[in-house]
Design a binder for these strands. Sequence first.
DNA 1: TTAGAATTCTATAGATTTATTGAAAATATA
DNA 2: TATATTTTCAATAAATCTATAGAATTCTAA
Lengths: 204, 204
Amino acid sequence: MPEGGHLPPLRKDKKTKYLRRQQEVLDAAAAVIARKGYHGASTTDIAGELGVAQPSLYYYFASKDEALEEICRIGTAGYLERLQAIMDGTGATRNKIRDAIRAHIEPVRTIPNYVKSFQRERRYLPSERRHELGRLIGEYDKLFRLLLECGVSAGDLKPDLDCELAAFMLITQCNAAQYCVGDDVSLDRTSTAIADVFLTGAEL
Amino acid sequence: MPEGGHLPPLRKDKKTKYLRRQQEVLDAAAAVIARKGYHGASTTDIAGELGVAQPSLYYYFASKDEALEEICRIGTAGYLERLQAIMDGTGATRNKIRDAIRAHIEPVRTIPNYVKSFQRERRYLPSERRHELGRLIGEYDKLFRLLLECGVSAGDLKPDLDCELAAFMLITQCNAAQYCVGDDVSLDRTSTAIADVFLTGAEL
DNA sequence: TTAGAATTCTATAGATTTATTGAAAATATA
DNA sequence: TATATTTTCAATAAATCTATAGAATTCTAA
């Protein structure tokens, strides 16, 4: 058994196979945790999802905590970089906001179990990792807020806009986009609808 | 011990004292469950919050499930009625929307532990009660959507507004209002800010 | 002050959980 | 095929959880 349970075996050409299986285990864990919550999802449940015995999981992860850490890492990967890239662009404020909304919602749709587990279960992480994630989220919130503040400075958005609150509410709406139940809930239509209301309002 | 653990004693004048204590137990349970989640909150944790021994709780509730049911009942009480009353009023659409937002956020601020426990932990209810709550939420969503649709019909809101999505996103923002962290996060200011952006948008 | 009612406690049963150990099975390699 | 490596499993330890039973305590009222 690999040291610590989560370290891969030694032969280098076998690593990829090990890592592929580890990914499958992680997918199963994310699915069960998204469905039943971290404490509601037993390791027996996760093993059942995979069709293996419960101790087999420990060949790939040292602990349930560690699996949640990895799930959260995947669920948050790239967010900051994508938003930064959008802000570095040259388009109009409204298009940057549209792009930011779209970029945020995309993983919510493509890897919903990872994002959902991150959103709802990250508070059960060990404190060090939890605080680390908190800092990352704080940076993202700040960057999103900066996007709006730049729009205000440029004269594209209302000068009295509460950018902190507005950024928070936009992020909240993007996170909730996975729970939409309407007729056409495609990524495109959902992100466009959120952006439209945010930019131009609902009133005539 | 009262039959079933949760039924009050017989002498009628003692009932109020029993019910008061039951409320204290419920407050403690709501606080711990809001903080640690339903499965993360052990009955020992809840008893510790009250400073009593763990089995003492069972004098007031037959089970942990039952306590969660009661917490969810309190956390959702009055929502439908308040929204209905607002819709029955005669004011302009924009003011009804403002009132609806304000009314939704108020319990989020006044009884946060109950609302938070309801929002995040209701999925762990026994299935019958969970579906019952689901129907209640569905009615509320539908009523909120109707409010917007009436606005569209009256010519107060844009004819192409996606009322289902917009209602869902408004409710989502109200529910998230408990997590605001800005300078002035009063009920008034938060609800006004949400309504302003929704009605008139962020763009100049 | 004492009898009865109401409330809380100690002790514990019984189920479930995470994680470990060492053996068995499966797979790859020579 | 035989050997070594990788992967999985059965068995189980140890901790924790919900809930119960019955005793002890506290409160109330005559």
